[in-house]
Design a protein around this nucleic acid. Structure first.
Length: 314
DNA sequence: ACACGTAGAGAACTGGT
DNA sequence: ACCAGCACTCTACGTGT
């Protein structure tokens, strides 16, 4: 046990030195900004995206004690995907000790009793058992939908709250679990349609929709309308547009928000349209097709919006 | 190749019954 | 609980530069 921990630690350590990252922008040399929620590393000055999809949810392995030998203060990361957050102890089923030797009959009886009580505590009451099943479903669905683990965790949190608020009465566990996944995916900015989630769910679309309605209302789960300006940097960067264009795009959006033409429209649409319009205004050639590609919005939609944006400028 | 326009369908939400 | 209507976005097709 002792030996394996240090072995893992060493491997991590060597990895760390090889993947050393710089903290200055390759373009302009100013400080970089790490956005953990979006997994992006971007430049504070020119908005260049240096790195995307950086994910490191692992534990923190450096040792702060002495010469760096003892890393035992960290355990496994806790996760909302396990009904006990992964914090419970585990009693093996084999009647062997740490060296693999058979146990005495007395010890075996003792372990059997421990296991029994461990099991009783683990799923102590209906709620816990309910949660256990639901989280299993959440995990299954998120992975079937190709959603990142963080979404599953958010869904777990949502489900827990629904359970606490007593929202499950008359509703199936599965329906609420699916609704939680649906909500979590939206909040994480990687939405899946109701149909998509219903396909991987064991309940039909309508039930999911109803459960979601209820849950989102009762829990006040407003999916905060994301600010279109948050997308501008990335789009401009992906299209190799200069900071000037990005700035212009932000101005367009400011005016649009002022005039309230953005409400009800998807933020990615608005951001894409703004970037396109700004590119034209600053004499940089970008096609609608390019913008629609990076913004994941149909060309027609870019078309219909960018004119509105320009009108709102007056 | 690109921009622009229109029509019809689909998805998600709202409010009335 | 169900339905109709809604605003938005999409696909698919067209025309114009």
């Amino acid at each position: 046990m002792q030996a394996t921990t240090t072995a893992v630690g060493r491997e991590r350590e060597t990895n760390e030195t090889t993947t050393e990252r710089e903290d200055a922008c390759p373009e302009c040399g100013s400080a970089l900004e790490h956005d953990d929620t979006r997994g992006e590393v971007s430049c504070r000055e020119c908005g260049l995206i240096v790195d995307e999809d950086v994910v490191d949810r692992g534990p923190e392995w450096r040792s702060f004690e002495g010469d760096g030998e003892n890393r035992s203060r960290v355990g496994a990361p806790t996760t909302n995907l396990m009904h006990d957050k992964g914090l419970s102890s585990v009693i093996g089923w084999q009647d062997k000790d740490a060296y693999g030797k058979r146990l005495s009959s007395r010890k075996r009886r003792q372990l059997a009793r421990l296991r029994k009580w461990d099991e009783r505590f683990r799923a102590r009451d209906d709620q816990e058992r309910n949660l256990k099943q639901a989280l299993g479903e959440v995990e299954r669905m998120t992975s079937a939908l190709g959603l990142p683990e963080t979404v599953g965790e958010t869904a777990g949190v949502v489900y827990r709250r629904a359970l606490d608020e007593d929202l499950l009465r008359g509703r199936s566990i599965e329906a609420v679990a699916t609704a939680s996944v649906y909500a979590a995916a939206r909040q994480a900015g990687v939405p899946r349609s109701l149909d998509e989630v219903a396909i991987v769910s064991r309940v039909d679309r309508l039930r999911v929709q109803r459960a979601y309605r209820q849950v989102s209302r009762e829990l006040g789960l407003e999916v905060p309308p994301t600010d279109p300006r948050e997308y501008v940097e990335r789009y401009a960067s992906d299209l190799d547009l200069p900071g000037e264009t990005a700035r212009r795009a932000r101005e367009l959006l400011d005016a649009a928000i002022e005039e309230n033409v953005h409400s009800g429209k998807s933020p990615t649409t608005m951001a894409g349209a703004a970037v396109y319009a700004a590119a034209r205004l600053t004499n940089h050639s970008v096609t609608q097709a390019d913008v629609s590609e990076v913004a994941n919005v149909a060309r027609v939609t870019i078309r219909s919006r960018y004119k509105e944006l320009l009108e709102a400028q007056e």
